[in-house]
């Protein structure tokens, strides 16, 4: 393999990886805040992609405007979802397994809604960053590679600053770490969980937007993407911010290399096998995630 191909593949993998990472980050945030593993994250991503398609491609709004509208819509949807659906179930002490199954039902619901609204055919729209590869030092790289990296980097930094530097962010982290203590200190736990959902669906929407130039939109696309995002979150260490990023990048790059060097037919099988093996050997993931039970 030439150095040029190597760089090419790394960029390609990094791109997919960052999208997985964003989705995984959403999963980890909700897990931390509420102990719920959101199985509908992949389908939230899908619907984000379709909303973007509507505003950007059908309504021809400028890219940044459509981008913003999509995130706002999805964020509000996430907030309402938590307020109206998931948080009441926490409050009423539902069996956690039932709430988890609720996210599964949500996933099925979103998939059917997307199918009804936008139809079964794959949809693409013009790549806003241009579809002509840039030739840099003999390596052909798509412009969206760079844009995606920049957008994700800015986003991750902003999110870190929000969580560490603002009152709301600190309250959200307090709820995640010590919910009882936080509520005794006057933090509104329900509100914080709902805000976490808002962030998480917003992140899902961004992954849905960024993935559009890479793979076409279909109602079922969330299924496979979700498992990659789950894999990223679990391999990195569920609940860990850095873990989600590292996990996503590992999955993205491993996938691209396997597809190129071995076979693209079984690249998903390869990733799932890696995930299962990883969980068996190191269930807590790369970063922490203490899942052992105390006696």
């Amino acid at each position: 393999m030439s150095l040029a191909t190597l760089i090419q593949l790394i960029f390609q993998g990094l791109n997919m990886g960052l999208i997985y990472a964003l989705a995984a980050l959403g999963i980890s945030l909700i897990w931390n805040a509420s102990g719920l593993f959101n199985f509908s994250q992949g389908d939230l991503l899908t619907i984000g992609g379709y909303i973007m398609l509507t505003f950007f491609s059908f309504l021809s709004l400028p890219y940044p405007v459509a981008f913003l509208i999509t995130i706002v819509i999805m964020g509000i949807a996430g907030y309402l979802l938590s307020k109206g659906y998931f948080y009441p179930m926490f409050q009423q002490n539902f069996n956690p397994q039932i709430i988890l199954i609720g996210t599964v039902a949500l996933s099925v619901f979103i998939r059917n809604s997307v199918l009804l609204t936008w139809g079964p055919n794959a949809k693409t729209y013009t790549n806003p960053f241009g579809s002509k590869p840039l030739a840099l030092f003999g390596v052909n790289l798509m412009p969206h590679y760079f844009w995606n990296i920049v957008i994700v980097a800015v986003l991750v930094l902003a999110l870190q600053m929000f969580l560490k530097g603002t009152v709301i962010g600190i309250a959200m982290r307090a709820v995640a770490q010590k919910p009882v203590a936080a509520s005794l200190m006057g933090v509104k736990v329900g509100q914080m969980i709902s805000l976490t959902f808002l962030l998480s669906t917003g992140l899902a929407a961004i992954s849905g937007i960024l993935i559009a130039p890479i793979i076409p939109l279909t109602p079922e696309m969330g299924g496979l993407l979700a498992i990659k995002a789950f894999a990223a979150a679990l391999i990195g260490g569920l609940g860990s911010f850095g873990g989600a990023l590292v996990g996503g990048i590992i999955i993205g790059i491993a996938e691209v290399f396997f597809a190129t060097l071995v076979t693209s037919t079984y690249k998903d099988v390869f990733i799932f096998a890696v995930l299962i093996a990883f969980l068996m050997i190191r269930p807590g993931g790369i970063f922490r995630a203490d899942i052992s039970e105390k006696v």
Partner: peptide, 26 residues
Amino acid sequence: GIPSFKLTGPFLVVTTIALGEIVRIL
């Protein structure tokens, strides 16, 4: 069933999804 020796909750569920998908892809 083997992953269930070590894994619980969402960890196990993700494993079962992955195995289901592996069958479908095969």
